[in-house]
Structure formats: C-alpha cells, structure tokens
Design a protein around this nucleic acid. Structure first.
Lengths: 368, 368
DNA sequence: TAACCTGATGTAATCGGTTACATGACACAG
DNA sequence: CTGTGTCATGTAACCGATTACATCAGGTTA
C-alpha cells in the first residue's frame, strides 16, 4: 500500500516544505541538464582539464552558479582515489608550539589546495595508532608527531600504503621520510654557550624518560660538559616540572650556576622558582631553554634559548608530504631524514655572571 | 598492439615489484569473497547494524584483519551522504587561545567518532568565505570563528544546507546557532573590580575597531565607569600593541592608576612597558586582562584577568554542532545563542593600591 | 568528391560502499 | 504434510563524480 517511490518522496517533501527547500543538493547531472550539455563537459569545465568552447564553459558556469552546485567530494574521491586532504597526528601537546606548527602547516596546505585533518591529544603509542587507523583512507598522506620511540615504525606499518612523514625528533634508522630537529646539536650549543660565558656548574632539567627528544637533548648536554659531572633532574616539559626541578637544584650542597632546561616552558618554571627564592638570574644562575616559543622573549629576564622555526618546520613538513604523495609508488625516491638545526638566541637570562660558581667577588668583565 | 587490460596490468606490476606490493587496497568485495559471504554481510558486520551469526561475524573479521581492509571513506560518504567530519574555520590567531580551543574541540570530536578539518589564518571576511566554500561538501557541519561582524551572516549563506555554528563573540541578531563570550559582562566585572579596589582613573586598551569582541569589551568598559571620563587607547590584541598603548598612557598628564586591557597579551605588553619605565604594578598601576591564557598565571606580577574556559568552549562548540547535524532539516529546534560567562580571577596585578588616584590617603576599605 | 584529420562533445563503465528487497532455511502450529 | 513466520543472508540498484572511448561536425588536402 505504501507508494513511496524515491522520486515521488522527494517531490512531496519539497512541495510541503516551502520555507526551507530541503531538496537534495544539485548533482553534476542537474548542472548538465540545465546547461544543456553532457556531464563530461561539466566535469571538464570544473576541472579545467580539456578543451572546451567558451560558450559551453559559460553555460556550465552559469548553471553551476544558479544551482549553487558543489561537487560531491566523496564521489570525486571514489573515482580519483584522491582526497586532497592530509592528516596530522599530534601528541598531547600544550602551548604555543602546537599552534605555531599548525599555522605553518595550514599555510602550506592552503597554498597547495589541500585540507588538513588534525587529531591531537594522543598520550601513548596505542592512542596514536588508533588515530592513525581511523584516518586511513580519509587522507592522501599523514604527518605523525610522536615523541615515542616505537611510534615511527609502527606508524608506517599501520598506514599501509598511505605515505607517512615522521616528525618525532629522533633520527630514524629505518630510512623513512622524516624531519627532525637536531636536538643533540642544540643541546651542545646551549652548554657550550654557558661554558663560554663563564659558568662552571651546569645542571640539566630533562624531559620525561622514554621521550625521544628528551633523551637526545640530555645526551647532548652530557657530552658537552667539559669534564664537569652531569647534574640531571627529571621533568616532563611542563612549567610546573621546571619549577619543581629548580627547587631541587637550589637544595643541593653546591648550587649550580647555570641550568639548561630541555624546553622553554620548564626554563620558565625554573626562572620563576629562582625568582621566588631570591636567587637572581642571570647574576646567580643562568638559564637556557629550547624551542624559542614567543613567550621566551616576553618574560623578564628574557630567555636565552634555541630557536626552532616552528611554523616553518610545519610548512616544510606539509610540502615534503605532498611530494611523497605525488611520488606515489616510487616514494623511495625521498626517504631521507631532513634535519632542522636550532639557532642559539642569546638573551638576558645568560648574561655573563658577576660571580661565577663559588667565587663571589669576580666581576663579569666580558660585558660591555 | 598494446595488451594492457586492467587486470593484466595489475598482475604484471605486482609480479615485477616483489618488495612493495602496490596491489590496490582491498575492497569490501575482496573481504566478502575471502570470508565466503556477501558484501551485505560484511557491511552489516562492520556497521554493527543488523543481526549476524557469530560464525559469520568471525569469518568477516578474520578476512578484514587478514586483508588489512579499511572501508573507502569516499564510497561510504557517497551512499550515506555523511562524512563524519566537521570543519573549523579560524581567524588569523596566534598564541595559546587557538591551541586550547582546538584541544577542546578535538577531545569532543574524538569522543563522538568525528574528524576535525581545520583551516586557520583567515584575515578578512573574504578569505573566511573562501575557506568556507572549499570546505563545503567535505564536512557535515562547520564552526566559524570570526571577529568580523558580517562574517556570521555570510557564513550561513555560503554554507547552504551545511549547519554552521558561529563563535564570534557577538550576540547574533539573526537567531543563528552560536556560542559567545559575555564580553560586555566581563568588561564590566573588570572595571568594577578595579573600582572596588580603590582605583579612580581607569584606562582601557582596546582591540582593533571593527572587531566585534573589541567593540563590545570597550562598550562594557565605558558603561561601567562610575562617572569617570573614559580613557581609551587602541590596540590590536598583540603584546606589542599593549606595550605601545601603555607607553602612551604613561605620557598622559594624569597617569591612570589602572588599565583594563582587552586581552591578556596586551595586558602583558603593558605590564612589561610599565616595568621598563619603573612604574610599579600593582602599587602605581593595576592591570587586568581578558581570557586567562595559561601565561597569565606565569608572569610576575601574576595577572588578574577574566577566565574563559577555552578548551571547554571548544568542546561545547563541537557538541552543539553535532547536535545541529543530527537535527538535520529541523535544525530550527536549536538556534539559540549560548553565552559563556567569564569569571574574574584576581591575582597580584590588582592588589589594592596604597594610594588610589588623586586621593593619596584613601585606602581600599571595600575589600574584606 | 572522397579520405582524413582535428577538436568539441556525448555515452557509459567504473570507483566502493549501503541498503531495500528477495530469497532461502528452518521451526512450529494446524 | 502444508502453511506461516522469523531470521540470516544474498542480489542488485543506487549514490555522484571521472574518464576512456565513441561520435560527430567542420575544415583540409589530394
């Protein structure tokens, strides 16, 4: 008894509901019909691919405008097997690093007509993989940021034939496409700068163990100490951890006269802890961070740090990935690990000390 | 002479390239074949919709696992006309506000099995609309953040039948779904707090003219002044603008004893300018910000500000939008503008002054 | 004038899912 | 033993684009 043929149904509903015409969106066939051409011509006009008479083009464009036609992305991706979308998987990342990175990526993506799907807040490797799986097929390629060592290799497996660019700071041994910050070099530069400005007891506030970047920066720190015994306190990249670590350092018998924190947020926490305790920076203790988040130039004293051009790195990542996608099957062409070298930015927090180490009356002659 | 039938071609290529089998990805039909069931059954198992024998389910799942099968998103969206993706369009926004918002949105999206397409860095209304158009058809709904007045209405038009949730801080007159911060109320609270702590010459550093939030906050400021003439300096929400503005304020004949900045970054800039000029905060001048970015608690003096739970607002936005999408045609059900009320967080930057305005000996008796 | 080329346009197969409807197996009532 | 209802499963139409190939008009050349 029910007469609901598909077309009948639609006709009825649009007749009833005069206000908000819930008629289905126009398809390429509707456009073709209205423009009195074939669907092929419409497609050609819209993709700018083939030879088309100016008359036809105009007729099609008019129809498109009149019907508010928007191509169905799913249908297109079904026949072309492209999505023009790239996925970004981020760790549970707070603060400005994240937003700067996305800004850079978005800029590059837009320049290439790609869209960006982001998925953040992935604490452990398992969550990261889940996000990766759920993105598969939805994107032409993915950028994975994960500080966990195993993540990179797993990612490539899970992704199947979807190209993956790894940005996890570790120099990947697998020969996968990657972009990494030269964490070791950066740490060495920080320590050498401290030594050059007369510091003698240099401590390190490191990131959580198991975090690739944290490990490498700590290693760089240790290797650059000229004979001095390492003094390492563990943190987790948060400002609070920096605060705690600095408190521990102040309780030591021989207080360090310099601190290299594994990132800016911890450096800032340390700075505040010193300030609260009446320990002056840079006079009593110098502080160096890592990343150069915008904040580093805003605190007092301004923070010496290792500048990583975050947005630029994001931009570069997207462009690499687009290259990988285009290369397709012969992606082997580009499997290098690109290195980003951080640059030391010297600010107030490491001005040469009036007193170095336990010599209270030695003045800082090196400052003009 | 060319014998390249489709299947032949594939067979050849996978035979040649033994290492990376570039065979096409498995389809639902491959899975059906391997599991010895029909595609319908496979689909049913994967969507958990219908009644399925446990045996069949297992066979299907095994085949899926073995073939690394991932449903083709485009094909699915073609037949269901859903994308399970929501779009977020952001203005050219720096700093922590952005990242916090995305964090909140991502959390909510993930909880509902949705994906997030973001597009940031849209300076003017035209760019915003372009982003919106290019996202159309790719998402089930969109969240538009734009401080420009016209954007909201335009957005709804351009979007066609795609649901749009506006988050631009202005109380929208059009009765569109929206979430807005109570900028007016927040500004009033800031000024009243300053008055209550004994300040008598309260200046305002506002955001750029034409920016909806800036306008409303300035209006709230003006309306809360108890008789005092308004002192307004224009900024643009950046830290540098706050610095400049504070410099201007210090050059006035009668220096203000309090500053309400339209956001935290400008408040911070002002704080630094005062500090550099030897003007003490809070003794000589009190400062209030807006947003409560994490940074506000990290500077010294810590910054009194109006807390907006940014991540929570993002979460809420996504949930509203998902509701709108589900409501579909009868989206009229929910067209309210939801208000987020900021909460005053009192910190060091507004500690009661020893001297208030031009009455040096009047103490702030009104505080308990 | 026939043969042939060229460039614009149309026809229809195809991509990989979902799902309405058809089918078939089986149990149980009459 | 037949009729009927239930439940699992299969068949095939459909979603809306792209694109290989067919077609066709018109001009050129021999």
């Amino acid at each position: 008894m029910t007469l609901r043929g598909k077309h009948l149904d639609i006709a009825a509903s649009s007749a009833v509901n005069g206000r908000a015409p819930a008629a289905k969106a126009a398809t390429i066939r509707d456009v073709a019909e209205r423009a009195k051409v074939s669907v092929a011509s419409v497609s050609r006009v819209l993709n700018g691919s083939d030879a088309i008479t100016e008359t036809t083009r105009q007729r099609v464009l008019d129809a498109v405008a009149h019907l508010h036609y928007v191509p169905h992305v799913g249908a297109r991706s079904l026949s072309t097997s492209r999505t023009d979308t790239i996925g970004v998987i981020l760790p549970d990342l707070y603060g400005e690093f994240f937003s700067e990175l996305i800004r850079g990526m978005d800029l590059a993506a837009r320049a290439h007509g790609k869209h960006l799907i982001v998925s953040s807040s992935h604490g452990d490797t398992e969550e990261t993989m889940a996000a990766l799986r759920s993105m598969r097929g939805r994107v032409d390629g993915m950028i994975v940021l994960s500080p966990h060592v195993r993540a990179a290799n797993l990612a490539a497996d899970v992704a199947g034939r979807t190209p993956v660019l790894v940005m996890n700071g570790g120099l990947d041994e697998g020969g996968r496409p990657a972009i990494a910050v030269d964490n070791h070099g950066g740490a060495v530069a920080a320590v050498e700068h401290l030594i050059a400005t007369g510091r003698r007891r240099i401590a390190h506030i490191r990131g959580a163990a198991g975090n690739l970047e944290a490990d490498i920066r700590a290693e760089g720190y240790a290797s650059a100490l000229a004979g001095q015994d390492p003094i390492i306190v563990e943190g987790d990249f948060t400002q609070a951890a920096g605060h705690r670590a600095a408190t521990q350092l102040m309780a030591l018998d021989q207080r360090p006269d310099a601190v290299f924190a594994a990132n800016d947020m911890m450096a800032l926490g340390a700075l505040l802890a010193f300030q609260e305790a009446g320990v002056r920076c840079p006079e009593d203790v110098a502080v160096v961070g890592f990343d150069d988040v915008p904040l580093a130039a805003l605190v007092r004293p301004t923070l010496t740090t290792l500048r990583v051009n975050i947005a630029e790195m994001g931009r570069r990542g997207v462009e690499r990935l687009i290259g990988l996608v285009q290369a397709g099957a012969n992606a082997d062409l580009d499997s290098a690990c690109e290195i980003v070298r951080p640059v030391l930015v010297v600010r107030q927090s490491t001005a040469a000390a009036a007193t170095a180490g336990s010599n209270p009356d030695q003045t800082a002659a090196s400052l003009s």
